[in-house]
Each structure stands twice: as C-alpha cells, then as structure tokens.
C-alpha cells in the first residue's frame, strides 16, 4: 500500500493527477451548479419578468402549480401555534419526503447558498494554515435546535426566523439585499479565521434538523471499495463532517461500509478527492459484503 502524504493545503492533488481536474471536481461542480441554478430560478422572474418560480426557499410556487414549503420553517410555524392552509402543508410534506429519501443534508450541500460561503471560508482556513483557537462541540447545533423547539411554542412566534442567516440570505438575494451580507460576512470570518467549519457544522439548527430528517435516507455515500484506501487522509480534509467517514474506513469484514450518519451531507467531495475511488454514491442497503465476496 502506497501512502501518499497530504496536507490541509492541497487535498486531492493525487486525484487530479490520476483522474483529470474535471473528474476530481465532478461533484463539487455539480453542487455549485445546483446551488446557483436553484437560486437563479428564483431570480429569473425579477430580472426577466418570466416567472417560473415565485417566492423563496421558505415557500415557493413553481409554474403556478407546484407549491413547496420548507419543512423546518413549516414546523416552526406549527410549533408557534399556527395551523397552516393545505397549500403549505402539502408543500412541506413533499419537501419532507424528498429529503427523507435523498438525504436531509442534501439541502445543505446542494441547495443552501450559505454552503458556498462556508466552503470558501474553509478553503481559506486550509490555505492559510490556521489553527483553531476556539472549538465548539458538533452537538452544539442540537442544543440550539432544542432551544428553538422549546422557545417557539413558549413565545408563540417563529423566533429563529428572526435571525436565521440561511433563510435570510437567500431571501435577500432573491428580493432585495439588506444587511444580511454582514451577517454572512461574520459567518465567513469565523469559519475562515477563527474556528473551522463553525456555522454549518456546529451552529446551524437548520442543518441539525435536516441531519435528523435524513437519518434514514435511502441515498448514501459508501466506501465499498475501501480495500483500495491508501490512508492519504484527503477525504478527511475536505469532508465538512469528517467524523462520519471514520466508521466506514475501519478495516474489518463485517462492518457496514455505508455512511449512515445523518450529518453526512451527500456532497460527494470525498468521492472527488479520492485517487483510489474508494467512495461512491449508492443506496443504503449496499453492503461491504456485496463486493467483498
């Protein structure tokens, strides 16, 4: 087994050499395309006057028929004591079902515009070789989620939506920009220069909600080809939730080689940077034993 050395600065060098740059950035490019495409669908109407999609990611109307509502926002509304109209209920159920199937945090890595900011921040963090002086627990986000779940019904209003940077940024991008960019800049500064992967990985309760939602999702990243792993550690460097990789790369026949942790965002960056093609995207029932025989 050849062990190549890696650093925080240049993960995936080996993969680029072996697979070409385009292949080594396939999932990243697809995700960026998806994020920008979805955002531009909302923007198209206000720029050209042709309304394909109205509203924003909290609730939208596509082609005047398909109504979609963000389940995280919807549940907050429910908790604060409002029973929504059928339109919103159906819309929330559709989105809920979709993410329960494809992975909750697919929202984070394929839709949420904040992800572009925090991914960029992490790139800076790695290039500048910064060492976190501050460290928040990964479970912090669940504490925040729990606080919201209690404080919302107590206050009777959607508390988190008064501060939620995720819905705020995309709303102000689609409608008109207020000072949300300052908040996003703050997130960037914290993530890039103070504490690594802090917003998405440790604070965002929306991500925590989608982690729980995707806990039993069908689409999963797996390491079926883990015998080819050369321990270069590049996947750990690029993964926004590196703790999810650990269990599947442990050697051993009877271990499940599918990433089952809800925190995995299905971003596919590990697939990109792996020169040995250890990872692939598949369904959760895929077992190591399937190819190990």
């Amino acid at each position: 087994m050849s062990v190549s050395t890696t650093s925080l600065k240049t993960p995936g060098l080996e993969s680029v050499k072996k697979k070409t740059w385009l292949h080594a950035h396939k999932w990243l490019l697809l995700r960026r395309f998806s994020q920008i495409f979805i955002l531009s669908l909302f923007l198209l109407g206000s720029v050209t006057g042709i309304w394909l999609v109205k509203g924003n990611m909290s609730s939208s109307l596509t082609l005047d028929v398909l109504s979609l509502t963000d389940p995280f926002v919807f549940i907050q509304s429910l908790l604060s004591g409002h029973i929504a109209e059928t339109t919103a209920i159906v819309g929330a159920l559709i989105v809920l079902g979709f993410y329960a199937l494809v992975g909750g945090r697919v929202y984070c890595s394929w839709v949420c515009p904040i992800n572009i900011v925090t991914d960029t921040a992490d790139w800076f963090y790695r290039k500048l070789n910064i060492k976190s002086p501050v460290h928040f627990s990964k479970n912090n986000r669940y504490a925040l989620l729990a606080a919201i779940a209690v404080a919302t019904p107590v206050s009777g209003i959607m508390l988190w939506e008064l501060v939620n940077p995720v819905t705020m940024l995309q709303r102000e991008l689609v409608f008109s920009m207020g000072f949300s960019w300052l908040l996003v800049l703050a997130i960037f500064i914290v993530d890039a220069f103070i504490s690594r992967r802090t917003w998405c990985g440790r604070f965002c309760p929306m991500g925590a909600f989608y982690s729980l939602l995707g806990r039993f999702s069908l689409i999963r990243v797996n390491a079926l080809n883990r015998n080819a792993c050369n321990d270069c550690m590049d996947c750990y460097v690029v993964c926004p939730e590196p703790q999810v990789i650990k269990p599947v790369l442990k050697k051993g026949d009877d271990l499940n080689s599918v990433i089952l942790a809800g925190n995995c965002t299905n971003c596919g960056r590990c697939i990109d940077v792996c020169s040995e093609d250890v990872f692939s995207l598949g369904i959760r029932s895929a077992k190591f034993s399937d190819i190990a025989k």
């Binding site: 609730s59 109307l61 509304s77 959607m158 705020m168 709303r171 207020g178 949300s180």
Partner: peptide, 30 residues
C-alpha cells in the same frame, strides 16, 4: 407565527406596495 416569509404576496402585489423586511429594517425580519 403564521408567516413563513416567502414573499409570494409581495410578488403578486401589482402595485409594488408590499415589501419584505430586510435585516436592518424595523419590521420583524422577512
């Protein structure tokens, strides 16, 4: 507790009367 801040009302207002509150405005965000 009921408004999800989607702005669909703003989009369908033919006279551009309605606006969504932005960060920095005095009105409850969004």
């Amino acid at each position: 507790s009921a408004c999800v801040r989607c702005g669909l009302c703003v989009r369908d207002c033919p006279y551009d009367t309605l606006k969504l509150s932005k960060l920095g405005d005095d009105v409850a965000l969004g």
